[in-house]
Simulated scan of single mutants.
Amino acid sequence: MNEAHIDLEAVELELDEELLDAIDEKAFKDHRENRDAAVRDLLDEWLKAQD
């Protein structure tokens, strides 16, 4: 994925309840309840799956 043209400082997402539950589960299990780290991890997994 070519990201050279992307120049964003912030992105706003609307998440459904199922995805929020998955984030909370991953945050609790893998990231010592750090929700931000869980979101970054899940986004990274999704981006790699798009390649």
Rank of each mutant, 00 (worst) to 15 (best):
M1Y: 10
M1P: 09
M1T: 14
N2H: 08
N2F: 02
N2L: 02
N2C: 05
N2T: 05
N2I: 06
E3F: 13
E3M: 14
E3S: 06
E3A: 09
E3C: 06
A4S: 12
A4W: 02
A4I: 14
H5K: 08
H5C: 04
I6Y: 09
I6H: 00
D7N: 11
D7C: 03
L8I: 00
L8V: 01
L8C: 08
L8G: 03
L8H: 08
L8S: 13
L8P: 05
E9G: 07
E9Q: 06
E9D: 01
E9I: 14
V11N: 00
V11G: 14
E12Q: 12
E12P: 05
E12F: 15
E12Y: 15
E12L: 14
E12A: 13
E12K: 09
L13W: 12
L13D: 09
L13Y: 07
E14D: 08
E14I: 08
E14F: 13
L15T: 06
L15M: 14
L15S: 10
L15P: 12
D16V: 05
D16W: 07
D16F: 11
D16K: 01
E17F: 13
E17Q: 12
E18D: 10
E18C: 15
L19F: 13
L19R: 15
L19Q: 03
L19C: 08
L19N: 09
L20W: 13
L20K: 13
D21L: 13
D21I: 05
D21H: 10
D21C: 09
A22S: 04
A22T: 15
A22Q: 07
A22D: 07
I23M: 06
I23F: 00
I23L: 14
D24T: 12
D24A: 04
D24P: 06
D24E: 15
D24H: 01
D24M: 02
E25N: 07
E25G: 06
E25S: 15
E25D: 05
A27S: 02
A27Q: 01
A27W: 04
A27C: 05
A27M: 00
F28W: 04
F28N: 07
F28G: 03
F28M: 04
F28P: 01
K29H: 11
K29Y: 14
K29C: 03
D30R: 12
D30M: 03
H31S: 13
H31E: 03
R32P: 00
E33W: 09
E33V: 09
E33T: 09
E33P: 03
N34M: 02
N34D: 03
R35I: 05
R35G: 00
R35A: 02
A37Y: 07
A37M: 02
A38Y: 09
A38R: 02
A38E: 07
A38P: 05
A38T: 15
V39T: 14
V39L: 07
V39P: 12
R40N: 05
R40I: 04
R40A: 10
D41S: 14
D41I: 12
D41F: 08
D41C: 15
D41N: 05
L42N: 08
L43N: 00
L43E: 00
L43M: 03
D44R: 09
D44K: 08
D44Y: 02
D44S: 11
D44W: 01
E45G: 05
W46C: 14
W46G: 14
L47W: 11
K48P: 01
K48G: 02
K48T: 03
K48F: 11
A49C: 11
A49R: 05
Q50I: 01
Q50R: 13
Q50P: 02
D51A: 10
D51M: 12
